[in-house]
């Protein structure tokens, strides 16, 4: 089997295809996503990142080029069902993707649609709720949960379908910092422990630093692609694309320009603290 789960081959997409010369939202993107990887997609509003996500599981079909999931072409209507049971999708607003009036019924919705045996559904639902840490809330009504909890229920709804890949389209955009952290930790654990491929679309730099691979989009194209360290070393390109550097990177840059001897490529708060501590020790401050 191919080691890439999703492949984009010179893909372009424009909404309103009837209008001649409608502006393409995604332009000539060629991309492959490795099985089991954790890919973050960054970009400012209107950069085409959400459209890229919707191209992954046949919600949108490209006008030119080809998107394949496990070798299945998303343009083939007959394969849509199989593509969607391979690539699940979590949206920005948790309220608009929860279907049932009880948490466990909602998680069961996907497997029920797949026609799984009732006993097996029960097992999968319990397992999925445990894996996102929401098992104790299984009998709650969704509207009584916090945003972060609702989003975790939505993620459980996808994992219960046992998809190989989850695409999350700005799942943290509507959440408070705590909810963001909950969702991020959950997604990281699913990737690490269950080997689920994750495509995480976000505009929070700190979340992107935790991925294996970061893609930066601007004006429908991918302008940077690499590990977080590589990508964030191109500071000018990132700022030109309308994005910020991660807070820790910005802070350590300021320290470096003030003459402190810190290593390059600091991205997370932990790295930054360690580097400052090492530097302080060297100077005999502590």
């Amino acid at each position: 089997m191919n080691e890439n789960i999703i492949e984009f081959n010179n893909v372009s997409f424009a909404y309103d295809s009837e209008i001649v010369n409608a502006p393409a939202v995604v332009k000539n993107v060629t991309l492959s996503i490795k099985r089991g990887s954790f890919v973050a997609v960054l970009g400012h509003n209107g950069s085409g990142k959400s459209t890229l996500a919707k191209l992954c599981n046949a919600i949108l079909v490209p006008q030119t080029g080809k998107v394949t999931v496990n070798g299945m072409d998303t343009a083939d209507n007959g394969l849509t069902f199989d593509i969607r049971r391979t690539v699940g999708m979590v949206f920005q607003n948790p309220d608009n993707q929860i279907v049932a009036t009880v948490v466990e019924d909602d998680v069961a919705f996907g497997p029920e649609n797949l026609g799984v045996e009732p006993k097996e559904i029960r097992r999968r639902v319990d397992e999925a709720l445990k894996s996102v840490g929401m098992y104790d809330y299984r009998l709650f009504e969704p509207h009584k949960l916090s945003g972060g909890q609702k989003q975790r229920v939505a993620i459980a709804g996808i994992t219960a379908m046992q998809t190989e890949c989850i695409v999350l389209d700005e799942p943290t955009a509507m959440l408070d910092p705590r909810g963001r952290l909950e969702v991020m930790e959950t997604v990281k654990r699913l990737n690490r422990e269950l080997g689920i491929t994750v495509v995480f679309i976000t505009h929070f730099m700190n979340e992107a630093t935790q991925a294996d691979r970061v893609l930066v989009m601007d004006d429908g194209g991918i302008i940077l692609d690499g590990t977080p360290k590589e990508v964030f070393s191109h500071k000018e390109i990132i700022i030109d694309a309308g994005l910020d550097l991660p807070a820790a990177a910005e802070f350590s840059d300021m320290l470096i320009s003030d003459g402190f001897n810190l290593p390059d490529g600091i991205l997370t708060a932990e790295e930054c603290i360690e580097a400052i501590y090492a530097e302080a020790k060297k100077r005999g401050v502590c």
């Binding site: 649609n113 797949l114 799984v116």
Partner: peptide, 20 residues
């Protein structure tokens, strides 16, 4: 949005659907 989310979770109406 809900319709999209339901389609993404493989909803195709009643056929072939089981219940937990």
């Amino acid at each position: 949005e809900l319709a999209f989310a339901m389609e993404c979770r493989c909803y195709r109406g009643g056929e072939g659907r089981t219940r937990m």
